[in-house]
Design a protein around this nucleic acid. Sequence first.
DNA 1: CGCTTAATACGATAATCTACGTACTACGAC
DNA 2: GTCGTAGTACGTAGATTATCGTATTAAGCG
Lengths: 115, 115
Amino acid sequence: MPTASVRALEHPTCEEIRLEGVLHALSDPMRLQIVRYLSRLPEGEEAACSAIELAIAKSTTTHHFRVLREAGVVSQVYRGTAKMNALRRRDLDTLFPGLLDTVLRADAAQRRRTD
Amino acid sequence: MPTASVRALEHPTCEEIRLEGVLHALSDPMRLQIVRYLSRLPEGEEAACSAIELAIAKSTTTHHFRVLREAGVVSQVYRGTAKMNALRRRDLDTLFPGLLDTVLRADAAQRRRTD
DNA sequence: CGCTTAATACGATAATCTACGTACTACGAC
DNA sequence: GTCGTAGTACGTAGATTATCGTATTAAGCG
């Protein structure tokens, strides 16, 4: 695994993560799709932004990842030319027990109904 | 209990309720406060819009109740001059099991931390 | 009927959000 | 150094949002 680059990315600390912000971040279909994707990775695994195929422009993708990061939903690190993303599962589970899983299950249920 | 007035209010059916819409409705502090208030009522109880003291103008309150209703989070009926509100607990629990309770618990946890 | 209370409708405004394209930067490979 | 890949920054357009004040409607009461 290549080391992280010097470029730093601002992440909210656990104390700074707000429920409203998390809910807002999750209330967009594109961002929900990103979170769903990341949630399927094995524990500890990361994915590059480009790994998720979204039907939107690249710059818009950047925007959505930023919203997720600033809300405290994902963590991002640069590795080479890639920016790797991971869910902040542990942090979210500590702050808001069960929230992430419940939302993901709700999302799965909705997709089952409407697909 | 007075009967409901003729004035009808549009509510989404269960099939029309979208997870994204629910999360968005819950991602506003004022609306979260309304939902918190309604969640504390005994099962089946309703509250008038005016029962909840919000630090905003009355017309803004109307707006937030409407967002909650259109997202499928609350149901509203006119009774006399009042408009009674209740959480759509049963519907939400059927569609998205555990979501409402988990969000309410997360909200309580956050308040415990930051108060 | 006229008064009061509860809530709405309307119109305005300022902020925020999503989306895009284009130009740019950082990194790794050659 | 040059090239390709990954992602950012910036400016912007269009939509939605949150807020307000004022005028208005509906219901119940005397």
